[in-house]
Nucleic acid binder design. Structure first.
Lengths: 166, 166
DNA sequence: CCTGAAATGAAAGGCCA
DNA sequence: TGGCCTTTCATTTCAGG
C-alpha cells in the first residue's frame, strides 16, 4: 500500500479538504492540530506530489439544466492497445462524456454521460458514438434518480485498515 | 430549463469554481469581470440556493491505497417504492459505495465502489451486498484502467445551448 | 446592483528552536 | 519538522453612485 509518506496529520488534511475544499488554511490547521504555516507547507507538498489533484466546486447539474444522466456500455471490435487508446482519446474530446473507464468482462468501456435533454443525448449517441470507428455494441441506461453521489474516498475505511495492520 | 435566475456572470462563476474550487475571491472577481464584493455576494447566493452543493479536494484514490474500483449492477426482487428506497438507504450507509443510481431497463441500480484491495471488496460483496434483503442479481465489473474522470458538467455545452435558444 | 475605501483577518516567507 | 513574527494580500463591511 503506497501510503508510506503520509503521516496521520497528512491523512487528516486530505480528509478535511475532501470534505470542504474551500476551508481556510487557519481553520484547517486548527482541525488537524498544528499551526498554520506548517499546515500550508504540508498542503503544498500534497499538491505537488499529486495526492491532491485539484479542487472543484460541486455544482448541481440538474439545477443547471443538465436533466439527463446516462450510463453507456461500449464494446469494441478490436481490443488492440492502439484501438483502445484511440477510443479513450475520442471520449476525452466529447464534452458530454464525463467519465470513461475500461472494464473487464464482456463489455469494454463504461461511460457516464450528461446532457441537457434526451434529444441532445440522442444526437450525440447516433451522430458521434455509434458512428465512431471500431464501436461494436452500445447499450444505454438512463438514470431515473440518483440515490448517492459522494466524491472521493472513504477515509474511515483507510484509517481502520491502517490501525489493523499496525 | 431552470437556469432562469442565472445571468452570464453567475454561470462564469460556476464554471470557474468548478475548474478551481480554491481560487481566491479576488482572482475569481477578476476573471468574471466585476469587483470582489459583489462577486462574493453572488457566490454566497449560489451556495444558498443550492447551485453550489460543496467544495471538494480531488484526491488521488490509487495513491492513497484504494487500488480497486468496481461498477456493480444490482437487480432487486421487488420494485415497490419502499423496497427501492430501503436499498438506497443501505447504499448510503456502505462507505465503499460512492455512487448509487437507479436505472431504467432490466437492471435496477448501478453502484460505483472503491476498495483498498480485491479481498476487501469481496468481503463487502459477499458479506453485505449479496446478503442484503431483496437483492436478486449482482453483476460486478472491475475497472481495468481509467481513461477520463471529469467532475461536474460541461459549461461549454450549456453556453452554446443558451446562445442557440436566444 | 455595482464600485471604491477602510478595517479585520488570513496567507506566505523568514528565521529560530 | 513545528512555532513565531512580519509583510503582503484577501475578505468583509460600509458609504456612495
Amino acid at each position: 500500500m503506497p501510503t508510506h509518506r503520509l503521516d496521520p496529520i497528512d491523512r487528516k488534511i486530505l480528509a478535511e479538504l475532501q470534505a470542504d475544499g474551500r476551508m481556510t488554511n487557519v481553520e484547517l490547521a486548527k482541525r488537524v492540530g498544528i499551526s498554520a504555516p506548517p499546515c500550508l507547507r504540508r498542503v503544498r507538498v500534497l499538491e505537488e506530489q499529486g495526492f491532491i489533484k485539484g479542487y472543484h466546486a460541486d455544482v448541481d447539474s440538474r439545477e443547471l439544466g443538465f436533466e439527463v444522466q446516462v450510463f453507456v456500455m461500449v464494446g469494441l471490435q478490436s481490443q488492440a492497445e492502439s484501438d483502445l487508446s484511440a477510443f479513450e482519446a475520442r471520449c476525452r474530446d466529447w464534452p458530454l462524456v464525463r467519465e470513461c473507464h475500461m472494464l473487464n468482462g464482456e463489455v469494454d468501456f463504461i461511460l457516464k454521460c450528461v446532457a441537457p435533454d434526451l434529444s441532445t443525448f440522442q444526437s450525440f449517441l447516433t451522430g458521434d458514438l455509434l458512428t465512431a470507428p471500431n464501436v461494436a455494441s452500445v447499450k444505454t441506461s438512463l438514470v431515473i434518480r440518483g440515490a448517492k453521489d459522494e466524491p472521493g474516498v472513504p477515509f474511515d475505511v483507510l484509517e481502520e485498515r491502517l490501525s489493523r495492520s499496525a
